[in-house]
Amino acid sequence: MSDLFPEEVRTERLRLECESVADADLGERYASMNETAIEDGELAYVPIEPFEHLQEARDFVAQREDRMESGDAGTYVVRPRDGEDGAGYPAGEAELFAVWDERTAFMTFGLRKRFWGRGYSGERAAALLRLAFERLGVELVSVTHLVGNENSRRAIGKYVDRFDGERVGRFRNQHVIDGEPRDVVRYEVSKADYEASGERPDCEFVEERADGGDGA
């Protein structure tokens, strides 16, 4: 496993855990993201389809394991910690991708609908920004959302403000979702922004997960 990205990131209310096919509970992953588990509108703004069978859950975890192994990405399943409603459930997916020759990184995040509105996105983003600037040493972290995705716009706007970042612009026809070209809005937080903000997110980087993934 790469030294660059810790195997687990702990925040006040969340655990971000890297996954492997060997250790993951694929049945749990399948049950949480098959057709019956997905609510209306839940995936409207993300390039993901519900799992049709267990093999798709396996492929999903395998791809994420490969990205983590590559040393270019921190790839984590997000679980609420003990004491939270839905503790232990795979509530979302968080990734931090490094682009070394640009000296930048970018984040992606998806959160299951029943966990929306709790501020989890900001809590996860803060921890990954700290990882990017204090550990990876990149100069800039960017994030985008699709135009029309008001929940993401609000969540991103909030943490970009907190870390003194900025909205840099809107790009036309940047992504294709369900065959339709879509505009995206891009935000950036630079290392200088992060330092000027005076924020130091409360989180813990765990290098090797000793418990095989069932701890809280």
Partner: peptide
């Protein structure tokens, strides 16, 4: 003008400060 993007393009295989881009559509 759509955006000013910092560190958009690598320079000298990552040895020099990356290029910043200004994009339009």
């Amino acid at each position: 003008e759509d955006a000013y993007i910092r560190n958009a393009v690598p320079r000298d295989d990552g040895d020099a400060e990356p290029w910043n881009l200004r994009s339009y559509s």
